[in-house]
Amino acid sequence: MSEYANPERLVSTDWVDKRRGDLGSVRIVESNEDVLLYDTGHIPGAVKVDWHNDLQHPVLRDYITPEMFAKLCSRLGIGPDTTVVFYGDKSNWWAAYALWVFTMFGHEKCVLMNGGRKKWQDEGRPMTTDKPDLPAKDYPTPAINFSNRAFRDDVLRYSRERGPLIDVRSPGEFTGELTHMPDYPQEGAQRGGHVPGADNVPWARAANEDGTFKSREELEEIYLGEAGLSPGDDVIAYCRIGERSSHTWFVLKHLLGFPRVRNYDGSWTEWGNLVGMPIETGPGKKT
């Protein structure tokens, strides 16, 4: 994994297996789409962070406040210097999402376990339903940092100025045939299509069959070659609620080393429901 731009951000299942006893400086966090999956069995020593119940504000459509983030970390035994290792289901969508949220709160020591939950299980590594008993740690209230987060006005400006904008949804969602991802009716939108000027690079292009990331060379071929990004680009990625684009954000930011990458978490469920936003249907400028 040394080929990647920030190799320290990606660890192997083997790395995690060797360090899972070190609950002092490392905390393993499982983040899944399904709120109960962790409870059916997880890596020994791992704690759960639910993308919805733990990271979303209970009232506002936004993330938790810095105070709530500090409390969450404290409860999970995470201190400001703890290395947090994220893994999860669905090729690490939610793990990447949780990692991105932690980054927003300035927790830089966070890494992703390549291949996620499925690879760990497929390799026959140990799982348990026992929850670790961890002492709470002090976590000072962090400052919030939006340098990795795009808002709708940023995307609107990018659309007008033709900034590098990557739509990571499936081709059917991009062209406007589908207003939600196949099988996810709850994340629909009033209008289908994409932000004018966006390129369609489905998130799964970056993943191998086993859920691990493709090699740097293969990733460069996709994002620099086919999608035409330049190494110094300030890229914005979006999907429908920001989880698949967190996966692409991780690829662009940490595996390919783009200087600035932002995830538009409002994504299509915001854009496709707003009145008066520009929308393009069809295959777009290039696919």
Binding site: V35, H52, N53, Q56, Y184, Q186
Partner: peptide, 10 residues
Amino acid sequence: PVLRMNRVIG
């Protein structure tokens, strides 16, 4: 309340 809106709709 424990599953939250998004999951409940699904």
